[in-house]
Design a protein around this nucleic acid. Sequence first.
DNA 1: TTCCTGCTATGTCACAGTTAAATGCGGACC
DNA 2: GGTCCGCATTTAACTGTGACATAGCAGGAA
Lengths: 242, 242
Amino acid sequence: MKTDCHNCPLRKLDLFDPMSKDEVHFMSKFKTGEFVAQPGTEILAEGASSSQLYTALDGMGLRFKTLENGSRQVVGFILPGDFIGLQSGVMGEMQHSVEATTRMTMCVFNRSELWDLFKYQPRRAFDLTHVAATEEYLLGEALAAVGQMDGYAKISWVLNRFFRRLTALGLNENDQVPLPYRQQDIADAMGLSLVHTNKTLAKLREDGVATWANDTLTVHRPKMLAENAFERGTRLRTRPLI
Amino acid sequence: MKTDCHNCPLRKLDLFDPMSKDEVHFMSKFKTGEFVAQPGTEILAEGASSSQLYTALDGMGLRFKTLENGSRQVVGFILPGDFIGLQSGVMGEMQHSVEATTRMTMCVFNRSELWDLFKYQPRRAFDLTHVAATEEYLLGEALAAVGQMDGYAKISWVLNRFFRRLTALGLNENDQVPLPYRQQDIADAMGLSLVHTNKTLAKLREDGVATWANDTLTVHRPKMLAENAFERGTRLRTRPLI
DNA sequence: TTCCTGCTATGTCACAGTTAAATGCGGACC
DNA sequence: GGTCCGCATTTAACTGTGACATAGCAGGAA
């Protein structure tokens, strides 16, 4: 049951830049298939080279690095529309692992055809560079949060980030968004211990700012959450969809 | 005193991927000038759009973000060969500020000609995406260090990272490399306080692993420093020069 | 129905790291 | 030569966070 690029549900969202007919046509040829990954599936492995690149169509996942001391740093959360495997595509080797958290459906592209994209579709190549720069920006934001905030601000920051991203994906119903991750995932993203993350989430709940339970994040006070996280403005920037 | 691309001193280094005659020729046309920045100069500002992009030819600088609470997160250290302003070039707006730490000489490119590079030089466009992916990788590494290491490992990690990068740039003389940054810069990169950074540097000196004084980093025990930082392998990957 | 596993929740204590303040030193400027 | 500034260093007091232990709950498997 392949999702036709011409009928891609993500393209309808304001979050993603519009695509020309020519670009859509090229992408429908560039796309070689769909891949459905079950929860826990390792989609890409750190240090490995992959012949496939992906766009997440549905479902959620994680990007993480494993340190030599065994600890895990989550370097990103994959949501619909995210591109997966760029590092393998241009550097030849993934610098982080990717794992499905829920059942995920992904559009599949062959790495061997990436060069054709650069040769024949400079606008798409430019968009790919834009996606890479966006990833860099998101990592910079995360580094700033992890490096300069205390636990309460960190948890506020990550929940606020999820809330905004999931809202922009049209997944917000009455200030509730799906959040199927574990507390350990958030802890490993923010550089906190599991216990401290749990206690901080309890504090946010007790303060009436946000509640995370049963794979659902409910934000009672969006402005307060954003302020706790030292977030300027509310607007997420649009970005290209690959 | 313009540096001719055909005689670029950086191109001689093994750290950078070779360039074809056609690529060098294109770059010498793409380059519009040289810019010399004095220490303290703000080269690019967070939130601003710039009409220029740069490659650092000589000298060192910083990339940083400022949080609403006034704290500063250093998100990168600029060394010769680093590309500056990619986010402005593809996203339209810088997500971090760039400041010169020493006197810096930079090759200047016009952002308006970036599109030509994508249209007429797909190999260079591919290299630019590679550079973006490399920045993403470096930020992921930094996030892992800041998020998962204690103070001693963090300082070891950043000094080891400098030692390797500066050695690859041919700046290592008897296990000594120039390091003209302040302790506050390192503290803001690793998410530590200035006092704790100072104490940790003292501990490394006392352990006979590394000494940083008079803008010079001396690594007495490179393997020990790398082990403290949980760094696998010794080899830095080559990358394209823009 | 029972047992096991994974995840969430809570309490207590120790300490790595922060904050505030003071001192020393070297270089630039008058 | 004296003064001022920026940076490095040190000390003391404090606290946010980690480590450890324990308990509860829900869902899946036997």
